[in-house]
Structure formats: structure tokens, C-alpha cells
Amino acid sequence: MSRFDQRDEILARIRRALGAADDDPERRLAVMKRLFDHPPGTVPARARRPRDALVAQFISMLESQAAQVSRLERARDIPKAVVDTLRRRNLALRIRHGSDPYLAALDWASEPALTRHLGAATADDAAGLSRALAGISETGTLLLASGPDNPTTINFLPPLHIVVVREADIVGSYEEGWAQLRALYGERSLPRAVNLVSGPSRTADIEQTLIMGAHGPVALHVFIVGSD
């Protein structure tokens, strides 16, 4: 705590402003109840469509945000799809990814020309591969959780970001995404970073002209993988 810290004074000022006592059990109860119940607000109807419509919407939303989307039938198609994507973009056959068991379990030997680098991304990586925990249909958004499985730097440093999301992990709303996170990480707990990604990096700061590849990836390619 810094020598300038004014914690208690600030909290006291707030309580004075609110005319509230800090030991008012009713207020505290209401606050704790909200934190543990986390009641949802209005979930848009577009997030509550039939499954096929949700997947189609997820794809069209991502595409409208300048992401590329491919559908793969099975997980074992991923290595070849990665190689094809790199080739199409005239990139060296090298990819960076984390220790995600789903990715690790793939038959990478089927693509011997591809070099894989594991761990956090570096400035030299041209392409990174991540797996999203979920795809959120209502806005075409990937939900990525940090950790050794999917290091955050992969989401932002390489100019090409390839993200795998299982079709079964596509949900309608953000609320469903939070439910998945709570199931994995517990109540009131998140991984160090949760990245919601809805396209490649962009800016419109110069004359409101939209340009891709501001600081993060210039291109985002999403593989939606069907059931094996």
C-alpha cells in the first residue's frame, strides 16, 4: 500500500454521501446476493435461436467483422487446414500455439512440413493458433481464456491469428459463456485474462477510415470444427 493511500477516508466519504453505515446488514446482503446470484438482464432474442441459426449467425457476424471463417468436419482436419491457410497467405509453415490438450492431441505428424512452436508468442511469430472456450453467436465473438493452454500473447502478437472453436461450444449469448467459465474456474473467479475477440485488430482513428491490423492481428481466421 502506498504512502498516499486514502482507502478508509474515501470509503468514509462515500458512506457519508450515501448516508449509509458500513455495517448495515441489509445493504451488504443485497450486494452479496447480487454477486453470487448474478441475475441476467435481457438476453437478446437473436441469442435464443435454434442451434443451426445460432451457428449461421455466429459465422455471418464474424464475417461482417472482417474475420474469415472455415468449417471443418472433424478435429483431425485442423493440421491440414492450418497448413492450407498459411500457404494461401504465402507464409512460412510455422505456427505458434499453447499446450491446450485439444490442440496437442491432434495428429500434427500428418503435416510434416509444418513447424510448431509452443509457449508464449514472440515478436517474430507470423501466425498463432488458439482454441476458444466458446463462440458467442449474438455478436460473433470468440471467448478465449488465458493460461499455458492458450497464452494471451498469441491472440495479439502474430499478424495471423487462427482460432479453433468446436461447433458444440458455440452458444447464443454472453451469459452462456459466463456459465461455461464458472463451470471451469468456479464462482467469482476467472482466468488471469479473458479475451473476447470479434475480428482482426482495426482502427478508424485517421479520418474515420477503417483499416485492419492496427496493433494486433491483421487477419483472424476461425475454424469451426464439427463433431468427430
Binding site: 461482417s64 467483422q65 508468442a121 488465458s146 493460461g147 482466468p191 479473458v194
Partner: peptide, 24 residues
Amino acid sequence: ATGQECATYTTFSCGPRRPGDVDG
């Protein structure tokens, strides 16, 4: 703000690097 459905990146950051983390 911009008329986007959502921003490109929304990030929740929750503290420093954790055991096992390779970045952050």
C-alpha cells in the same frame, strides 16, 4: 459509441501472471 455490434476486443484482466502462465 461507434455503431458496432461489439468492439473487436473486450478483455477482462484479473491480476498478475499465475503459476504455470507463460505470459502476462
